[in-house]
Each structure stands twice: as structure tokens, then as C-alpha cells.
Amino acid sequence: MRVLHIITGLGIGGAEQQLRLLIPHMREVHSSVVTLTNPGAVADALRADGVPVTHLGMRGNRDLTALPRLARLIAGGGFDLVHTHLYRACVYGRLAARLAGVRTVIATEHSLGAAQIEGRPLSAGARALYVATERLGTATVAVSDTVARRLAGWGVRPARIRVVPNGIDVGRFAFDAGARRAARRRLGLAPDAYVVGGVGRLAAGKRFGTLIRAVADVPGARLLLVGEGDQRERLERVARECGAAERVVWAGAVSRGLPELLSAMDVFVSTSAEEAFGLAIVEALAAGLPVRYVACPALDDLPAGEAPGALRIGASAAEVAAALRSVPRERLPVPDAVRRYDIAHSARQLTSLYHEATKLPYEASDR
């Protein structure tokens, strides 16, 4: 089966990394990728994996010249199915596939919140355009039950929604004491320092300013922030204003070194009040970290007790600080919740959906 993935950009982000992780596990599928914009680090990684990547060179949301170019690319590729990722790619990709004569289009909704999409506030126009073009596709994949409910609330017919959770390579995140020592030396963190960790785009919705203020109120605590984004300068200012400038370590964006950085942490905190899944939280649990979080559909949609090392907390800086003062500094067993989200399982579910949608034969396996 030949599949074309269309994604808005290929910088370092959750949806982008998820696509890169999925493709090698879909062994019956010959995948190619088109990025509308930003052929960044994940594009380089995909090419290194042997996946063809094309940059469409789209100049913005209203660059309508991209539509016929994308349609020609689809028509010339002999694809059985088009799979779109992220808002702009979903809108343009569905239209282009229809123009190219490809009728089987799957879309994955990675980042739909209650009041925002991909970190930006929702407008009535954006929602109407999304729902209108959704009808041109075959099915829409939600990365969590929470996102499925949000899509249905938008007016997407429940029969068109399939839940295929995000996944991780569980073994890759196993705690490594040697990596912990090496990462702490490199980052200037003492072996006995109490290190609080946060991972994600430095965007307003992640509320890392709240985490910085909370750490400032915990004597001796250090904060290791992994990620980059347009809020970096503002967050540095917050750290200075609350007297924590010397206690924050800015690790920047990483594509391969996250397991080592998670090994260097003592507790993981997610202060984001609105998530579509909560991938970084699952990765932290796979590293044996105690986790404190404000919102995480990946855990909240599961039966109680499947992630004993993770506790939901209040959203204010005072509540986060109070939670940090009582976290035991010990590595924990990997919980059942993490094993639910193994990437191989997600890839099998998605491959099965491809074959169901195209009517091409498929024999499921446990490879």
C-alpha cells in the first residue's frame, strides 16, 4: 500500500515526532511525506530513515497556489491513501486529494483542545472550515477519547471518528543511571540536586511560567526545561522576576536525547491546563518518574489506578509548589498505563484502519 502523509511542518513537535515514530512500525505501508512548511529537524530524521520527504514551500495559511501544486503531487504519486496531520494540512490535504482523484483520506487530529487548536484560540471560522473539509475525507483519527468527544461536539459524525492513541517506544525511555550522571554533569546539575522537569513547546498554553514560579517557592529545587518556542524570552523574564534565573536550566529542543534528560530529573510536572493527549507525561512515566499534572487525557481517560505514580494537581503556582514539596525522590516501576501506549500497538491499529478504508487485504500480526 502506498500512503502519502501530509503535515503542516516538520519542526520538533509532538505530532511531527509521532509521525516519524509510526512510519517504521507500519511495515506493510510504503510511506512518503509532504511538509507544507518548515522542513526542519524531523524532515532530516525521516530522510535519514529512508522516507522520501517533499517540501511544498507554502507561504502561509492563505497561499492558495499550494493547492494545485499539492494536487499534482498526489495525482502523480500513485497513492492508495492520503493521511493528513495538523490543521492546515488537513484542510488543504483533503481538498487536494479530492482534486487529484484520491478518495481515501484519513486525518489525525493531534492537538484539539476545548477552546484552542495547536496552541491557538479557536475562531468560529476556523471551526467551520475544519468541519466542512472533514466531510471530504474518509475518517478522522482522534489521539484520545477526549479528542473524540471534542470532535463530536464540533459536529463531526461519531461514525467517522476512530480513536488511535499516540504511542511511544517504551523501552527507549527506561531509566539509565549512567545517562543521569552524564546529563547532570553536562548541564551543571549537582548529583544530589532536586531536579524538577518540564517538556514541551515554550508556548503560552503550556503555562511554564506557572512552573517557574512554583519551583522558585521550593527551596533548593532546580528546573530543567526541555523545548523551545516563542515564549522563551518572556519565561526568562519570569525567572528573573521571581528570583529563579540561576535555578532554571534551558535544555532547548531535542530530537534524540530526551530519554537522557528524563533520567536526569527527579519529578516531572505538566502545568498545561488543556491537552489533547499528554505524550510527554507518558514518556516521563516510562522513565520511572513520579508525575504531577494538571490535565492529561492519556491518563484521565483510563480506568483509575493504572498510573499510580501520576497525580493530578491544581493549576496555580502555589498548588504546584505544594505538590513538589511532597514528591518522594525515588524511581518507580513503569505503570500499566504506559504499556497501553506502545507505538507498535498504535501502528497496528492505524494499518488496520488503512486497509479497512481502502478495502485492500490485510493480515494483522504482532510483529
Score class of each variant (00 low, 15 high):
Ala97Phe: 00
Gln17Lys: 11
Arg47Asn: 01
Tyr92Gly: 00
Tyr87Lys: 06
Leu202Phe: 15
Arg339Lys: 09
Tyr341Gln: 12
Ala43Ser: 14
Glu236Ile: 08
Asp145Leu: 09
Leu81Gln: 09
Ala357Pro: 05
Val248Cys: 04
Tyr341Val: 15
Arg27Leu: 07
Asp192Arg: 09
Ala251Phe: 05
Asp49Ala: 10
Thr210Pro: 05
Gly252Asn: 14
Ala190Asp: 11
Val249Gln: 03
Arg222Phe: 01
Ser31Gln: 08
Leu299Trp: 01
Ala323Phe: 04
Ile212Met: 12
Ala15Val: 06
Pro39Ile: 09
Arg292Gly: 04
Thr37Asn: 07
Glu228Asp: 15
Leu189Trp: 00
Pro290Ser: 15
Leu21His: 09
Pro121Met: 06
Tyr293Lys: 07
Gly153Ile: 14
Thr210Asn: 02
Ala273Cys: 05
Val199Arg: 07
Arg127Gly: 14
Gly229Cys: 05
Val196Ser: 08
Pro52Asn: 13
Gly309Phe: 00
Ala183Val: 01
Val269Ser: 02
Arg207Glu: 13
Arg237Gln: 13
Val33Glu: 05
Ile23His: 01
Gly220Asn: 13
Cys296Arg: 03
Glu356Cys: 04
Leu211Ala: 05
Cys242Arg: 03
Asn61Met: 12
Pro303Arg: 09
Gly9Ser: 09
Gly278Glu: 15
Glu118Pro: 01
Tyr293Ala: 04
Arg325Pro: 01
Asn166His: 13
Ala286Lys: 05
Ala337Lys: 06
Thr54Arg: 10
Gly153Ser: 10
Val334Gly: 04
